[in-house]
């Protein structure tokens, strides 16, 4: 239990955001109306994705310096988990867009950037699947993963700052400025981000442990 305290934090934080996210007051904004509450659930998906993909990048770099196959397992499982939250972010964003911007998909810098990022990471899995030899696969995948994260930074952090977007803070900082979030919303939003990141990490550690058990059983190493 001592080792698992952060899982408790994850559950408590997310449960708090579910309750507070629906019950606390939100500013009445035209177009958004009550959908402003989506912020507590949709945005943490992207924070989680960027965090877990950074973990993936970290272990890919580690693999390239130490050539330990364990780093490769961790990197690939982190990327898998990143795709899960990324897909949830895309789907929830699309639903939200339909009811506020009027279409399931609009040619917005952030939307297209997120979609391209997902495709770049899908190519990472195709690349992995196409190489049989383990060390070779790990090395090439690690190099590609570094490229993929650089592309993620370009598409999700640099390009949205250079173009207009329907997202808050458009044509400048893609994050929120002081007018977009009031202090009540911050009280829910920040725990939501922390809670979802921790929950994503939990799912990721389960995947890694399962993969290691599988390898032990299959190859006895």
């Amino acid at each position: 239990m001592k080792k698992n305290w952060w899982k408790v934090v994850a559950v408590v934080f997310v449960l708090y955001t579910i309750i507070a996210g629906f019950l606390f007051n939100v500013p009445a904004q035209p177009i958004l109306h009550e959908t402003i509450r989506n912020l507590y659930f949709h945005v943490p998906m992207w924070f989680s994705m960027m965090t877990i993909l950074f973990v993936s990048l970290w272990h890919s770099i580690k693999y390239l310096s130490k050539s330990n196959i364990e780093s490769d397992i961790v990197a690939s499982q982190a990327a898998h988990t990143g795709m899960l939250v990324g897909a949830l972010g895309l789907i929830t964003g699309s639903i939200w867009a339909k009811y506020t911007w009027g279409a399931w998909w609009v040619a917005d810098t952030k939307l297209n950037g997120a979609a391209i990022t997902m495709l770049i990471y899908l190519a990472y899995f195709v690349l992995r699947g196409s190489i049989d030899e383990e060390q070779k696969r790990a090395r090439i995948a690690a190099v590609y993963n570094i490229f993929a994260y650089v592309m993620l930074v370009v598409f999700l952090m640099i390009l949205p700052r250079m173009n207009d977007s329907l997202h808050p803070g458009n044509g400048g900082n893609p994050g929120f400025n002081k007018y977009d979030l009031d202090s009540t919303m911050r009280m829910v939003f920040y725990p939501a981000v922390i809670g979802w990141i921790l929950l994503t990490v939990w799912i990721f550690t389960l995947r890694v442990r399962l993969e290691k058990v599988k390898r032990k059983l299959l190859y006895n190493d």
Binding site: V11, V14, L15, I18, I19, F22, L23, W202, I203, L206
Partner: peptide, 17 residues
């Protein structure tokens, strides 16, 4: 009611995890 339903779903998923 909505908050309760979503909380139950979330607790269910956590129990599964």
């Amino acid at each position: 009611v909505v908050v309760t339903v979503i909380s139950v779903i979330f607790i269910g998923i956590v129990t599964y995890l």
